[in-house]
Design a binder for these strands. Structure first.
Length: 496
RNA sequence: GGUGACGUGGCCGAGUGGCUAGGCUCAGCUCUGCAAAAGCUGCUACAGCGGUUCGAAUCCGCUCGUCACCUCCA
């Protein structure tokens, strides 16, 4: 069924390309993971939902995918290089926690949020702090190749030297001369030969908590190195897909490519570079520095001034999927409301479909709408194959929903679709919604609240001495391993 | 300043030359004990101005506007 060849937009070539794995049926995919120094926010949700759909899609069409997504728990300077302190170290000192304690706390929190969003865990989730040796090895290679230099216990990548043989800026479309003419004078860059040079290894100042021994003294790895080193370790020098947010394109991914080309890998790392676009809030990028970000916890609890009610993880997922991953997506309470309704409509349709299957026994071998409905499903797969156009695929699903709702208004069954076609629709509708888009039916009702309702009816039946009804309620609950208990203070329930 | 993206109906958001996605909202109708759900109908848009074309939201030019990256960021 899903035999449409996948086309994917490659940032490296700025074109949609036919996806051809280097060694089918295997696919290696690396996605830049979070820096675990804070709660996950809407931006994380968008990135990891987007790549989750890619991962699910590739698996669905039969590829054997190894999905690697890292946890960044070292490096990433918070200020200028001479401050010599990284984000995680800074927070740790403020809160007097071990750095690894902070890392673990936010890693757990991140995992929790990702699970709520029904994002499949990656196959390997390497931590930067666990790959210092690999990073040091990579620095050595780059130095041996004459493209990095040591100054006072720090090692810098020599961008101008690299640019003689390679093209620094090939991914982000930047030209080194222009970059040079626009560099700002930053404090504490005396160690660098060129302002474009970036750190591969930074010397740790005495108060710096996170530090590792190296051939150049105690320090910590540079901002961009971990992804180059870990992707190579688990996926090889060249692999299929490297993903991340658009904001990582420069300098992060540009530097990754430079490092890998300058090391013994001598590669661009990935054949396809894929970037998801940003979430905006009132048309502006959401960002830590702008102070307008919403954490996933805040969204799910409704505890934020931007939202007037709690929004469920699946509502958010649906909201994200209703836009194409390469478009910016504007967040608002109103937009979330619309997404919530749409999501509910889709789930109700799914439930209706499942009921139909059982009810659909006496029908003809062929129906006049068979071809039409099969085409509707096909178009959904076609949309997915076209650079993962989830928005278009969802619109196709709604076309199916409208058709079915119209033709199969309960309890009247239409004979316009054959049994085989209905089974086909059901199978693929389920596959698309549940497996590929990764949506799931969130049971809206809270079990405790439902039990309260049941107990009210139980009390009423008892008061009216309707013992047939009382016994029926007891029997029904027993099937759920629950028992009702009468006492002087009222009715309560317990597990049996 | 450099580079890039974008401007679609009340809102969100697909769509790269003709067949004018989809969701939400609003109004009306059908169904319904009431309601909900569902269905139907209506509000039918492509920033502005020129150009190319038999034909443009879609290609080209200009103008206006918005945003992103160039610094940690998904």
């Amino acid at each position: 069924m899903n035999s449409f060849p996948l086309k994917i937009y490659n940032t490296l070539t700025r074109k949609k390309e036919l996806f051809e794995p280097l060694a089918a049926p295997f696919v290696g995919m690396y996605v830049c993971g979070p820096t675990v120094y804070g709660e996950a926010h809407l931006g994380h949700a968008r990135a990891y939902v987007s790549f989750d759909v890619l991962y699910r899609y590739l698996k669905n069409v039969g590829y054997k995918v190894r999905y690697v997504r890292n946890i960044t728990d070292v490096g990433h300077l918070v200020n200028d290089a001479d401050e010599g302190e990284d984000k995680i170290g800074k927070i740790a000192k403020l809160e007097k926690l071990e750095p690894m304690e902070v890392v673990q706390y936010f890693t757990n929190s991140f995992h929790h949020d990702m699970a709520l969003l029904n994002i499949l865990p990656p196959d390997i989730e390497p931590r930067a702090s666990g790959h210092i040796i690999e990073q040091i090895e990579m620095i050595r290679e780059i130095m041996d190749n004459g493209l990095a230099y040591e100054v006072n216990g720090s090692v810098y990548f020599d961008v101008p030297a690299y640019n003689k043989e390679h093209k620094y800026g090939k991914l982000s479309g930047r030209i080194i001369e222009e970059l040079l003419s626009n560099t700002r004078e930053l404090e504490g860059q005396q160690e660098k030969r060129s302002p474009l040079d970036f750190a591969l290894w930074k010397k740790a100042s005495p108060e710096h908590i996170m530090r590792w021994p190296s051939p150049w003294g105690d320090g910590f790895p540079g901002w961009h190195l971990e992804c180059s080193a870990m992707s190579r370790k688990y996926l090889g020098t060249t692999f299929d897909i490297h993903g991340g947010g658009l904001d990582l394109m420069f300098p992060h991914h540009e530097c990754e490519i430079a490092q890998s080309q300058a090391s013994n890998s001598k590669s661009d790392e990935a054949k396809y570079w894929v970037h998801n676009n940003m979430i905006t809030i009132n048309g502006q990028k959401m960002g830590k520095s702008l102070g307008n970000f919403i954490t996933l916890g805040e969204l799910f609890s409704g505890d934020h001034k931007m939202v007037d009610m709690p929004y469920s993880p699946m509502t958010l997922r649906f909201f994200i999927l209703q836009a194409h991953y390469r478009s910016t997506l504007d967040f608002s309470n109103e937009a979330l409301q619309a997404a919530r309704k749409g999501y509910v409509k889709l789930m109700n349709a799914l439930r209706l479909l499942e009921k139909l299957e059982a009810a659909y026994a006496e029908v003809p071998e062929e129906g006049e709408a068979d071809l039409e409905t099969v085409k509707m499903i096909e178009s959904c797969y076609q949309s997915m194959a076209d650079d993962l156009n989830t928005a278009k695929a969802i619109s196709g699903l709604f076309n199916v929903v409208s058709f079915l709702n119209g033709k199969f208004r309960e309890p009247i069954l239409s004979a316009e679709v054959s049994k085989a076609t209905l089974a086909f629709i059901l199978t693929h509708f389920r596959t698309l919604v549940l497996d590929v888009l990764g949506l799931k039916d969130e049971k809206a009702a809270d079990a405790d609240a439902l039990l309260e309702v049941v107990m009210e009816f139980y009390k009423k039946a008892k008061a009216e001495k309707d013992y047939a009804q009382v016994d029926a309620i007891r029997a029904a609950l027993k099937k759920q391993n629950l028992v009702l208990k009468d006492s002087k203070t009222g009715v309560d329930w317990s597990y049996e």
